[in-house]
């Protein structure tokens, strides 16, 4: 038997010490603000229906009156954390492992560490400020924030790509991507504007963001995910993303609390999953019951901790900051 050369950690021990320091600082930040650390299940009966997220599944065998033996590994702890919020837990945070099938690359590992937190009485704008404060505190003396910029999704697209995401059509975008940016996409659905906007975001805009913290807010309603919509022409989602040094780091919402709207979005997701031939997902009825009983007005955000460690270490590959990345796990 040949010894496996990759039994050794991919990340240096110094990087693992930096990871531990960042985790300790994150916990100190939340402790100093009296935000409660919680733990919720990794294995759930239901999962996120978002067609862009693929869940791993596993099956329980053994004793106990377990009716749902099929379990989904969480893609984020959002649903059980909202059940805690509805139960009156107040502001809470969690550091946990999450799992996403089909995501592996320089900036993706199928299991990764997520920091997720919820602030009652905050909207997404308040929470953006707290994300900035948290990053400032955690990165102090290690990789201080150069600058902080705020953009709306529309302004960002106009500035960096010359594209208006609210009026552009997929066909026009395709022609401009080829002629102006030398990007040749293959097999993208012609009628799915969001898919084309994702292409512009990842291929054209992200590489131009540069150093510093960049907040993007007011996403198209079709990209609301679990954010509430704000009336307007056009209506926009109360959602934000944070990019640090050009890397997508965090995604936040002014959380949707309307149970009927939430159920309709789940059903729409499931329909899109059927059309895209993705695995069917069991809708989280316990979350819907929690919303029915009343979710306090709150904003929440999920932040990729491995990417934060990557940026703090000044490297560009996640496998440099994870002890045992997926291919040597």
């Amino acid at each position: 038997m040949q010894p496996y050369a990759d039994w050794r950690p991919a990340a240096s021990l110094d990087t693992l010490r930096l990871r531990a320091e960042l985790l300790a600082r994150i916990r100190r930040f939340f402790a100093s603000r009296d935000i409660l650390e919680v733990e919720t299940p990794v294995l759930s009966c239901a999962a996120n229906t978002d067609p862009a997220l693929q869940s791993f599944t596993t099956v329980y065998t053994g004793p106990g009156s377990v009716t749902d033996t099929l379990r989904y590994l969480q893609t984020s702890p959002e649903f059980p954390m909202k059940r805690l919020l509805a139960a009156g837990a107040g502001s809470i945070y969690q550091l946990c492992k999450v799992f996403r099938d089909g995501e592996c690359g320089a900036r993706h590992n199928p299991e990764f560490t997520l920091l997720e937190w919820y602030r009652t009485g905050f909207d997404h704008l308040d929470l953006m400020d707290e994300v900035e404060q948290m990053l400032t505190a955690v990165l102090a003396g290690i990789a201080p924030l150069d600058s902080v910029q705020h953009w709306t999704y529309r302004e960002l697209f106009l500035q960096f790509a010359g594209v208006d995401p609210f009026t552009e059509l997929p066909g026009e975008l395709q022609a401009r991507l080829e002629s102006e940016f030398d990007i040749t996409p293959v097999g993208l659905p012609e009628d799915d504007l969001d898919c084309w906007l994702d292409l512009v975001m990842t291929h054209v805009i992200e590489p131009k963001l540069g150093a510093g913290l960049v907040f993007v807010r007011d996403y198209p309603a079709s990209q609301a995910a679990l954010a509430r919509l704000r009336r307007g022409a056009p209506p926009v989602a109360a959602r934000f993303e944070a990019y640090l040094n050009g890397v997508e780091l965090a995604n936040g919402f002014h959380e949707l609390a309307d149970v009927a709207e939430q159920r309709a979005r789940f059903e729409n997701d499931l329909e899109r999953r059927r059309r895209g031939r993705h695995m069917n997902i069991k809708m989280d009825e316990r979350l819907l019951s929690a919303l029915e009983s009343g979710l306090p007005d709150c904003a929440g955000v999920a932040l990729g901790v491995d990417r934060l460690v990557m940026i703090a270490s000044g490297v560009s590959c996640l496998s440099d900051v994870i002890a045992f990345p997926f291919d040597s796990a």
Binding site: A52, E103, A106, R107, L188, H203
Partner: peptide, 14 residues
């Protein structure tokens, strides 16, 4: 080749 995907969006292979 490179895997590219926004957290809430379409996955691409570049």
């Amino acid at each position: 080749n490179e895997f590219v995907k926004p957290g809430k969006g379409q996955a691409f292979v570049r």
